[in-house]
Amino acid sequence: MPADPEEGEPELSVPVGMFEDIEDLKAQFHQLTALVETLTEGGAEETASAEAGGSAADADADDQVEEEEAQYPPFILLLDSPQYDDELRALIEWVEGVLVPGYLAEPSADARWCHLWFEHTVAVARLHAAWLAWQELTDPASCGYTGPSTWHRDHLDPALRELRGAAGPFAGCVKGEHRIEHRLPSLVPSAWTHAGA
């Protein structure tokens, strides 16, 4: 039987199980605090202890992080074979199927283009970045109806200026012995035929 409250003390009615709930909340708070410290400081030891004492909430958070990582492909220059090769094939398909016929006029001294663009690392990097942005910004569910405009302004136009400019990666493709035969975009040979060569 609980002790009678002393004179002057308020009588508190505490529901059964409330102390257990408070202890559970404290434990969850400490786990989340440890996780935040681990993420901000990058301590491997704290990660191991947080994982060892992890809860279902930690597992759900890990699953969510894995799903997010799976949703967004990594930047192409960070990949190794065979992932790099697979991503490059998909990029080539997009460049030759969408970008070349839709956006590239006949190459000139002011607007260079190399039909072997995939052999230029800088071109691969810039075009891959533009392609990743295109995938996101042409989906009305994720960006609304202004996404394509944003993609043109913030991604495509700057990428093409850098690639096709006089100091861009294709500069050597129109000068002296480094000259590569340029063709109209509709006549650009398929990169698939050059991949095995």
Score class of each variant (00 low, 15 high):
133 A>C: 03
115 H>N: 08
134 W>H: 13
56 A>S: 13
142 S>R: 11
126 R>K: 08
121 T>Y: 04
100 V>R: 11
112 R>D: 10
125 A>L: 10
131 W>P: 00
64 Q>N: 07
85 D>G: 04
137 L>G: 04
123 A>Q: 05
144 G>A: 05
86 D>V: 15
115 H>L: 00
56 A>M: 08
151 W>I: 06
77 L>E: 14
104 L>K: 09
79 L>Q: 14
64 Q>M: 04
133 A>F: 06
110 D>S: 15
96 E>S: 14
102 G>I: 05
92 I>G: 07
54 G>K: 05
107 P>V: 07
65 V>E: 02
101 P>V: 08
74 P>T: 09
92 I>P: 01
118 F>A: 03
127 L>H: 11
62 D>N: 05
134 W>A: 03
60 D>M: 12
145 Y>G: 11
80 D>L: 14
73 P>L: 02
66 E>I: 02
120 H>I: 05
136 E>S: 02
84 Y>P: 12
150 T>F: 00
117 W>Y: 02
72 Y>N: 11
84 Y>Q: 07
85 D>S: 12
87 E>T: 15
67 E>Q: 14
143 C>F: 00
82 P>I: 06
131 W>E: 01
70 A>V: 02
71 Q>N: 04
138 T>P: 00
69 E>L: 14
144 G>T: 09
145 Y>A: 09
145 Y>V: 10
91 L>M: 07
56 A>K: 14
58 D>I: 07
65 V>R: 13
111 A>H: 15
143 C>Y: 01
133 A>M: 10
151 W>E: 06
70 A>C: 07
141 A>C: 04
96 E>G: 08
72 Y>D: 09
139 D>T: 11
109 A>H: 03
133 A>L: 01
63 D>L: 10
106 E>V: 15
154 D>E: 14
100 V>L: 12
62 D>C: 02
87 E>G: 00
91 L>Q: 05
142 S>P: 00
110 D>F: 02
141 A>M: 11
90 A>M: 10
146 T>N: 12
101 P>S: 08
86 D>M: 13
101 P>F: 00
146 T>W: 03
74 P>K: 08
70 A>Y: 00
110 D>K: 15
116 L>N: 10
93 E>M: 12
126 R>H: 10
60 D>N: 08
115 H>P: 13
130 A>L: 09
137 L>Q: 05
54 G>W: 07
125 A>S: 14
55 S>Y: 02
